[in-house]
Amino acid sequence: MDVVAGLAVPLLRENVDTDQIIPAQFLRILTKNGLGRYLFYRWRYDQDGKPKPEFVLNDERFKQATVLLALKNFGIGSSRENAVWALTDYGIKAVIAPSFGDIFYENAVKNGLACIRMDEKLIQQIGREAEAGGLTVRINIKEQSLSYGSQSVHYTMEPSVRRRLMSGEDEIENTMKYENKIMAYEQRMKKFYRVDRKRLLYE
């Protein structure tokens, strides 16, 4: 994946925590598929399950949005990867925010969801242009640039994140190339860190 492009939707709130992205009741699942319907569930639907017209994703102009604009600390809170699965299943391909929760950010990379860090003022500016609907944002992961309307801006991303977003590699397979190092540690691991299961028989 070198380029992500799509309709931008402004959700210009700070501290959008993972409980808001997907409430805990929808974590009682055995698969990661089909969670898009629960995305922002309590903001999107009322207690009878009817769409709340005031919520931006229920606005016809943003139904096809794939690029989410948000304010600082997006994805703070719980480690639930379900938050990322809900976003990607819904169709979101990139989130642009000034900062992200650490665990959310890593979960996103693992699932090919591009999280782009940008200055808040710039996001507010893009958000204003996106408000009317119809603003396409194009993110070039390879070039680390973002364009919208006639504007183009540069952003920075850790090399490892950029590489992984572009390659979509199987990280476990990659890690197993280091198996000799893993085994070497296991040889020297402190013996008192090992677990002898029989011990729980005592009390």
């Binding site: 990661k32 480690s79 639930r80 990867e81 990322v84 665990i103 959310f104 890593e106 979960n107 693992k110 699932n111 990280e171 476990i172 890690t175 197993m176 280091y178 893993i182 296991e186």
Partner: peptide
């Protein structure tokens, strides 16, 4: 604290 993909990574590699 880690997400489910990292849980899988630790399961498979202990790293």
């Amino acid at each position: 604290g880690i997400g489910t993909s990292e849980v899988e990574h630790v399961f498979a590699t202990q790293t």
